[in-house]
């Protein structure tokens, strides 16, 4: 079912070669070589950069791990949820899911992360929970939108061919909804790179750590290290996931 959607995306006219897939990860790796980033920032004269105690590559891996784990759980939870609420005669459940998703979009991420602390304690666990809650929003809403946008006549044709409900779901609905769903996964992952930086305030580690330390020590160079690296990570993931989904907007 993936092959059909991939060919569909390749046929989009005017699609340029995605240079970002090469450029952003290359820049990220370059910045992670010990000593490169401090030397680049030294001429700006913004603050002292001593050796990083957890090395930068480890902070980046922690960050990436948190985001990847959250995205995995979000996929496992979000896709079945979107499927479950778009079945016939589940109108009320879908409205509930859409309302909850809307709330998730509205409530500040930092508030969600902070509210998880009393329940789960300090560390990476509340951040992971926050990332999952926040990451579910685009996946569920895009999943619902994608499944609802499947043409009724396509479903009728499938029914006419004698497909069972399960076959219709796997062979018609999901493949047709896949591009929109993947766009949701992309949004979810990229936003979560940003949300995970805030998690450093809850002791999650990751690239937010230099930012938070720099802000509280008034060391702008330290802030820049974290900001540049997390921005590059977000752009890299965005470009990589963009390979799988058609360009929208």
């Amino acid at each position: 079912m993936t092959s059909s959607s991939v060919t569909a995306t390749r046929r989009v006219p005017g699609r340029r070669w995605p240079w970002g897939v090469l450029v952003w990860p290359a820049l990220l790796l370059l910045c992670l070589i010990p000593g490169v980033l401090p030397r680049l920032l030294a001429p700006l004269n913004l603050g002292e950069l001593t050796a990083f105690d957890p090395p930068l590559w480890r902070l980046t891996l922690t960050h990436l791990g948190l985001v990847a784990l959250a995205t995995g759980v979000v996929l496992l939870l979000g896709v079945p949820l979107a499927i479950a609420v778009t079945r016939p005669r589940r109108e009320a459940l879908r409205q509930l899911a859409e309302t909850l998703v809307g709330l998730g979009q509205t409530v500040p991420t930092f508030a969600i992360l902070a509210l998880a602390v009393p329940a789960l304690g300090f560390g990476w666990q509340p951040t992971l929970l926050g990332l999952i809650v926040y990451g579910l929003v685009p996946v569920v809403s895009n999943g619902i939108a994608g499944l609802l946008a499947v043409d009724a006549s396509a479903l009728d044709a499938a029914r006419g061919m004698g497909m069972t409900g399960r076959q219709r779901l796997l062979r018609v609905e999901l493949p047709l909804a896949l591009p929109i769903l993947l766009a949701g996964v992309r949004t979810s992952t990229v936003y979560n790179v940003g949300t995970a930086t805030v998690g450093a305030a809850l002791g999650a580690g990751g690239l937010g750590e230099p930012i938070i330390n720099g802000l509280s020590q008034q060391n702008t160079a330290l802030v820049l290290v974290g900001a540049v690296l997390s921005a590059l990570l977000a752009l890299s993931l965005d470009a990589l996931l963009g390979l799988f989904s058609p360009r929208n907007q």
Binding site: L44, Y191, G194, T220, V223, L235, Q249
Partner: peptide
């Protein structure tokens, strides 16, 4: 669209850099 992908905390930090400079 590109700036939307940047973390808000990172943007907060990035904007503070020129101001403090």
């Amino acid at each position: 669209n590109a700036i939307q992908t940047l973390p808000s905390l990172a943007l907060l930090g990035l904007l503070i850099a020129p101001l403090s400079a």
